[in-house]
Design a protein around this nucleic acid. Structure first.
Lengths: 346, 346
DNA sequence: TTGTACGCGTTATCAC
DNA sequence: GTGATAACGCGTACAA
């Protein structure tokens, strides 16, 4: 069998130093004479030493692990968020243990247990099945992204302003009636602010408007038929108006656009469309879709940065309760073809 | 400060057992009397014990960590593969440490070092920057997915058969000339077989065909203009034929389809299109795109399963060299609208 | 500048 | 059925 790995003991024996000296070579090299540094440096090469962070964790009590709980990776929003979070390794050095929750509370609680058993130093949570009132009891700092966050710190998109930007864009392009299409949304989630922003803006500016709330899922097989029904409704209700429609996300905007294009051969002048998220589907739609971009990179980096600060705070003042901070990132409006004149037809 | 966590020692003291007995309670509970089991069970609740897997790792030398190195998560193919890999936690219990490599060899090597220092038991690699000849020197079992794999085990899509399925579908729908569009592909990557399969099938069946190989990137900003040039070329070269085009992926197929629809108001009868990957963009395109589906779930599960077997083998016979196994997963053809008759026009 | 001794929280071995 | 003891690999007082 033989020893699996070379350890400090092996190096110590080889160099006739103590383990401590080897340890200090790594942690405070200046405390060794240059000659001794060199001797150890050479020994590391001779013996082909590889560091063992697990042992270090046990000794120091710090894992440099951050747990991530994401509801799914099917939606581009989540996979891109995960991507941007993982990329912060370069800046902050934290490693990520990732679990996909699949929207199941039981399962997600098991995952949290598992994460805790690995002594994660912090948690970034995008899943929404577990209420923040429960999450706040966990023994490590938590930052949520775009979910109910009453009792925990969070980073969210400024959904309210995003909705207003989208709505204003539709107004600017001469729409007679504004319609917001969304699925049922709990009032305490950040995304609810998209409805709120749309409504407030329309009311304050006395704009004729309607909010259509329908369960329509998130995959093609459910979104497409739902959009077909909504299109029929809209065409019946507003046959002669120019309709400006603000969708809760790009997927739905794209499905709706496709129905129009298949029906009219183009995007008729009687429609203007805005989506949300600036996902690739908006850019690669048959007519590129105007959309509200969430600055996922900024949100991700802000979330990790906030979490790292909370971790540091907890390390310095273990007894004090953690402060709760809610940060909000302004979205960016992308003006593309679905808010421009493209083709004739009412 | 106070003790951070409750440990076996605390439980031992509380119950007047030894640490050993507490350990055995978890690992071989039957070796305790039922009454003693109950006593410990209650103590765990009283003291609110949480397990510490890091300590277990150090003692047992097994981390249950698997490293993942993925080139990016921008492409749906990779994010979905990651998703499916993460979901295997339920079946195999391995936790995943994920790194996004960004196609940079230096960076990726650093990531591998980091992964090794966490004593990962195995590695799943989708990045292609590091040759398999180097990877095979790593001290843990490795399984690659869809990359050069000469010296390491792998799971790949049967790209050759996928190409043949796509090509045959185009032939069946009465195309006069077949065209395969791809970007420059190294001959030792699995994806090169898509070109090979297309060419072989056309030659063997004496079908008029052409292979267009152009650098066109993978994002809208580069793919779209490239597709425009290719469309112009094709229209000049084959003005009166029905053209069957097999694209190397759905993103490109979609961009091409969009150009046609914007030009003709529909998908003209003179074109038939097939993509590759069965990514959401194929399903949600303005005319749903026929495509070759990679069965990502099967590939992911197969890869993890293979890796787990290799890990077990290495544990049982640490000295013997690991066998190298290449597994191939058959893709599935999705017939959708872009290979059907939709609209007039040549 | 360097070494000794112990701790981190578990598992494994052996004795009782 | 249970307990004492020694690992696992590294960090850190404290001593020299």
């Amino acid at each position: 069998m033989g020893k699996q790995h070379v350890t400090f003991s092996d190096i110590a024996r080889y160099t006739n130093f103590s383990k401590t000296t080897i340890s200090r070579y790594f942690n405070r090299p200046d405390s060794l004479t240059p000659e001794n540094q060199e001797r150890i440096r050479q020994a590391l090469i001779d013996l082909n030493y590889k560091e063992n962070k697990v042992a270090k964790i046990l000794a120091k009590g710090q894992t440099e692990f951050v747990g991530i709980l994401v509801p799914n990776l099917y939606q581009h929003y989540f996979s891109e968020m995960l991507n941007q979070i993982l990329l912060t390794y370069e800046e902050f050095g934290y490693k990520f243990l990732v679990f996909v929750g699949n929207e199941n509370e039981e399962v997600e609680k098991r995952y949290l247990e598992e994460l805790m058993s690995y002594q994660i130093e912090g948690l970034i949570i995008m899943s929404h099945t577990i209420p923040s009132a429960e999450l706040k009891e966990l023994p490590c700092p938590i930052v949520s992204i775009e979910r109910e966050d009453e009792y925990i710190s969070s980073v969210n998109c400024d959904n309210y302003m995003g909705a207003i930007q989208a709505t204003r864009l539709l107004v600017r392009h001469g729409c007679d009636v504004l319609i917001h299409v969304n699925s049922p949304t709990s009032e305490n989630t950040p995304a609810f602010q998209r409805i709120q922003g749309f409504r407030d803006f329309c009311r304050e500016n006395s704009i004729r408007h309607e909010i259509i709330v329908k369960n329509m899922g998130v995959t093609h097989s459910t979104v497409s038929p739902a959009m077909r029904r909504i299109l029929t409704e809209i065409e019946e209700r507003y046959p002669y108006e120019r309709k400006g429609i603000f969708f809760s996300d790009d997927t739905r905007a794209n499905e709706f656009l496709n129905l129009l294009v298949r029906q009219y051969g183009t995007l008729p002048d009687s429609y203007r469309i805005v989506g949300f998220d600036n996902s690739p589907i908006a850019e690669t739609a048959v007519f590129p879709i105007s959309t509200v971009g969430q600055q996922i990179d900024v949100i991700a980096r802000t979330a990790v940065k906030l979490l790292v600060e909370l971790i540091r705070q907890k390390k310095e003042h273990p007894q004090e309760p953690l402060e709760i901070r809610h940060q909000v990132i302004m979205p960016v409006l992308y003006q593309r073809e679905t808010t421009e004149y493209i083709g004739q037809g009412y």
